[in-house]
């Protein structure tokens, strides 16, 4: 696997995949995509990067342990539901707001926050498992 070609283009692929995964996450509400698929793409990029550059480098690039990202995901998903409690509607009710930035409408919502949580969980868990298996240790 450790061919020069692969090692050279891997970072480019990884960056493209990561950007694409975030894109898929954001368009998910209207087009095919969403947090789950986005997270899968992101996890796949981690796998590719670790194959090319080695697990320690990949871990370092992530800065935190991937399972922490997963825990953070569950946290913000649960938190996004609490927003609606504060607004006096049942837990996890979707709330929407939108505002103008430079003439284009930007929609912001608690389901988006929730989906970001899903993204983090899938990305974090699968990255943690893959990196753990690859290096034979849990990190």
């Amino acid at each position: 696997m450790n061919t020069l070609i692969f090692r050279t283009i891997a970072p480019i692929i990884v960056v493209t995949m990561l950007v694409f995964s975030v894109f898929v996450l954001l368009v998910g509400h209207n087009e095919p995509g969403g947090g789950f698929i986005g997270g899968l793409i992101g996890a796949a990029s981690t796998v590719i990067y670790s194959m090319a550059a080695g697990v320690p480098v990949a871990r370092k690039a992530l800065r935190v342990h991937p399972i922490t990202i997963a825990g953070f995901g569950v946290f913000i998903a649960a938190l996004s539901g609490l927003v609606s409690l504060a607004a006096g509607v049942p837990y996890l009710t979707g709330l929407w707001t939108s505002f103008d930035i430079g003439g284009s409408q930007i929609a912001l919502s608690t389901p988006l926050l929730f989906d970001i949580g899903v993204y983090c969980v899938v990305f974090g868990t699968l990255s943690a498992i893959a990196l753990g298996l690859e290096s034979g240790e849990a990190g």
Binding site: G34, G94, P111, V118
Partner: peptide, 16 residues
């Protein structure tokens, strides 16, 4: 506010 039914079900209708 979503046209992707699958995603809307996941994050909104069946969020819990």
């Amino acid at each position: 506010h979503g046209r992707n039914i699958v995603n809307v079900i996941l994050v909104d209708f069946r969020g819990l």
